[in-house]
Simulated scan of single mutants.
Amino acid sequence: MSKVDQRAQRASNEWRTPGFGHGAGLVAGREVSTKLRSKAFLITTGLLMLAVLASVILSSVLSGTASGPTKVAVVGAASSVVTEPSGLEAVPADDLAAAEQLLRDEEVDAIVAPTDAVEGAGLTAASPGSPDASAAGLDVTVIGFDQAPGSVASALSIQPATAILEPAAADPLLAYFVAFGFGIVFFFAALTFGGTIAASVVEEKQTRIVEILLSTVSARQLLTGKVLGNSVLAFGQIIAIAALAILGLAVTGQRILLGGLGPSVLWFVAFFIVGFIMLAALFAATAATVSRSEDVGGVTTPVTMLVMIPYFLIIFFNDNPTVLTIMSYVPFSAPVGMPVRVFLEQAEWWEPILSLVILAATAALAVLVGERVYRNSLLRTGARVPFLQALRG
């Protein structure tokens, strides 16, 4: 064989047997490019983004809707900082005790009082005021009942300190919407991209394309590429949703909510990354056991239920600390349960870390089992391959 023929043969062999990373990257790139060319995917993503933006704007509009000026009880010299252009209506109170009674009776929305009177009553400021305000002799504190009176504080001509009479862990309605948001995003993304992986696996088996693919890449490379490609798309969608929600909250002035959501959103992204890889491997493995697209729904039902159960649990039991604690340590519900507990400040600092370690270990086991089932079932056509038989090989 001539040197030219030897080089051609060597190049041909290198092309047919790419390295693991290169082969998985080729498959992942194919998955991403195919999905990005899909009009259905682009339209669905656009509608989801619009829904997120609309919900942020709607929450801002509803929170800003009022039938008239906000009533605040003013004590002593603090009345000088409550002016008509601020949109606040001053209700004079003889002393701080009288003002507190007005607030408890819901006759006013907040109290504006001199800071020395507030400190004398034993109330601790939830947030400090502006140093310039103190220097100007206008040292006042705005007091809310169970939530920081951010809208009243921002309406004043100075930046006062804020305090709370009876602190609440979180607004129940806000907690519900946060739990619902985490639940629906995880549910939607996992089912959408998990279903895409399952459909792709069966389509390749049904059309015999998988036999051509396996002549170039291994089954492990093919599975890894599918999981990575769809994971990139899912992560990109989640990050885009988070960025849009944060931008919307900042533009609409909901900075208090933005500050409270920050840590829980970061934990949600971390848990979602690991949890989705686990579910993607299971979707691909179960789909590989059948050869017809009509059978995909039946074999992927158990995995679909693992996604649906946390969604319904978080909807109906978001105010139950016991259920949330259990959910935060069960791998299939931890991506929703633990971020909600972080938002509600029910979790110790070490709990999200421990839960994430448990989820990562479970994901690694799921990937190993899924890869074995996928590899042993991929070239079997005809009747459904029993799961245990595929696992034994």
Rank of each mutant, 00 (worst) to 15 (best):
G260D: 10
F193D: 11
V56I: 15
S59I: 06
V27L: 03
D109H: 04
L123R: 05
A77D: 15
P331D: 02
S377E: 00
P339Q: 07
L261W: 06
L359Y: 08
A135T: 05
M327R: 07
S130W: 02
I212T: 12
I197P: 01
M338Y: 05
A175N: 10
V178K: 00
V201I: 13
G137M: 02
L103P: 00
F41W: 15
S67E: 14
R10Q: 08
G253A: 11
T304L: 15
D139N: 11
T44P: 09
L47G: 04
G181V: 13
E351A: 10
T289M: 15
S33P: 08
D132W: 01
D319C: 03
V227F: 10
P92H: 11
S134P: 01
G259W: 13
T286S: 08
L222Y: 00
A240K: 11
T381N: 05
R384A: 08
F182C: 12
V227Y: 09
D139R: 07
F182K: 13
I353N: 01
W349N: 05
A97H: 08
T224Y: 02
E348F: 00
E211K: 10
A242C: 11
W267K: 03
G229T: 05
S355Q: 09
G225H: 07
R37Q: 15
S157N: 04
T286K: 01
P386F: 00
I315P: 00
A219T: 11
A54S: 10
R372T: 03
A78T: 03
G229C: 05
G259F: 14
A77H: 07
L103C: 00
F332S: 10
S355A: 10
V330E: 01
F268D: 11
K35C: 12
Y311H: 13
G144T: 07
G297A: 12
I164M: 00
S218A: 10
W267N: 05
G262H: 05
P352F: 08
Y374H: 13
T381G: 12
V385S: 06
L266A: 08
S130I: 04
L48F: 10
L62S: 15
I256T: 11
P69H: 05
P302N: 14
F187I: 09
I326D: 08
G382E: 07
A366T: 09
G68L: 06
F193P: 02
D139Y: 07
N376Y: 03
L138G: 08
